[in-house]
């Protein structure tokens, strides 16, 4: 009995193979970087690992081409919001990047409040509008004192406020 080649293509772990190709690129860049190292102590280990990584990636791609099987990656939840995911990462990155200028408290409040809005699925009742920002402020200020005053971590004050 002949198998339908289209069905095989559909069942291939395309994501896994593409990722393996990206990993080959990473390993090649690593190998290229090791060529400028003079001391063998520096390059023996990463070079061995990079070569092994290329070998495993080639094996994975070849295996998928010869014996196609579906990937075992996580299945996205039905109705999951990509916009919220992107917004979450952006909020974390932006508030962290602004920390040297805004300082820890202002950027922390910004991160907390924006992520709170992104993660909110319930209606904004009057109670929530009042209590949630208060809790957020208390949390950020509380953590500031815990880290800055008790644990003596030098949190950024913010160049705008200096």
């Amino acid at each position: 009995m002949q198998t339908d080649p289209k069905a095989n293509v559909a069942r291939r772990d395309v994501g896994g193979m593409v990722t393996a190709a990206v990993f080959i690129l990473v390993a090649v860049i690593a190998l290229w970087d090791t060529t400028r190292m003079v001391d063998s102590d520096s390059f023996v280990f990463p070079r061995t690992v990079a070569i092994a990584m290329i070998a495993f990636c080639v094996l994975l791609i070849a295996w998928n081409l010869i014996r196609p099987e579906s990937g075992n990656g996580g299945v996205p939840a039905p109705g999951a919001s990509t916009v919220r995911r992107v917004c979450l990462v952006a909020a974390m990155l932006v508030s962290t990047a602004l920390m040297p200028w805004l300082g820890f408290i202002a950027s922390g409040l910004m991160a907390f409040l924006s992520i709170m809005v992104i993660a909110m699925y319930d209606p904004w009742t009057r109670f929530r509008k009042l209590v949630y920002p208060l809790v957020c402020t208390a949390f950020v200020v509380g953590f500031y004192f815990l880290f800055a005053e008790l644990l003596l971590v030098p949190l950024p004050v913010g160049s705008l406020f200096e």
């Binding site: 922390g108 993660a119 880290f147």
Partner: peptide, 20 residues
């Protein structure tokens, strides 16, 4: 804890924990 409080709390803790 409601999700709207849990997510920012954990995210905030990851930021301050990593920074420290």
């Amino acid at each position: 804890v409601p999700k709207a409080m849990l997510v920012p709390t954990v995210a905030f803790m990851t930021i301050i924990g990593t920074y420290s």
